[in-house]
Amino acid sequence: MSEFIQTNVQPYFNFWIYVVLMMIGLWALIAKNNLIKKLIGMSIFQTAIILFYVSLGVKDGSTIPILDHHGPEHHETADAGHDDVHEKEHGKKAEPHHADDHVGPNPDTIANPLPHVLMLTAIVVGVSTLGVALAIGQMIFKEFGTLEENEILEQIKAGNVDD
């Protein structure tokens, strides 16, 4: 039983959680009547996507994508100026050089930085869109006196909108 969990559940468990979170967000976006609750759904959806991307960059036993650059050894390897072609080998070759006091640029020991960068961007866009959405929500409330979608639609159908 525990073997089954280890091979079939553990590697995918967090992806399932992101899918469930995304479903919660999507459901709130579609089914909720209150505009603010829709925005909360949108935020949950965004969070699920962000978590998903960040978890793609996780490597077992890896550290944060910030290099330890102290010590003179690193400058030697940095100035060595190897070609771009054999980076993988270079990373592994360089490892014994500075295995003593810090992590060398071996890709397997450092978490994937690219998802972090992309999600930093996504978080920022999320904040901006949320801010604009809240501002529009405030104007809708000022115009209609409610944030319930069906009541707003009724008012629009009745023609209670001053252009």
């Binding site: 553990q10 590697p11 995918y12 468990f13 967090n14 992806f15 978890s55 793609l56 960059g57 996780v58 490597k59 077992d60 036993g61 890896s62 994508p65 290099l67 650059h69 690193h74 940095a78 771009d84 980076e87 993988k88 270079h90 990373g91 640029p105 890709p107 397997d108 450092i110 994937n112 930085p113 690219l114 998802p115």
Partner: peptide
């Protein structure tokens, strides 16, 4: 699998180096 260091996103496909590996080895 979660945390796999050799997944396509982390290690590229086949022998090709992924962009993230380039960043890790070349940035400094």
């Amino acid at each position: 699998a979660f945390g796999d260091p050799h997944s396509p996103a982390n290690a590229g496909v086949g022998n090709e180096e992924s962009i993230s590996q380039y960043f890790i080895t070349q940035t400094y």
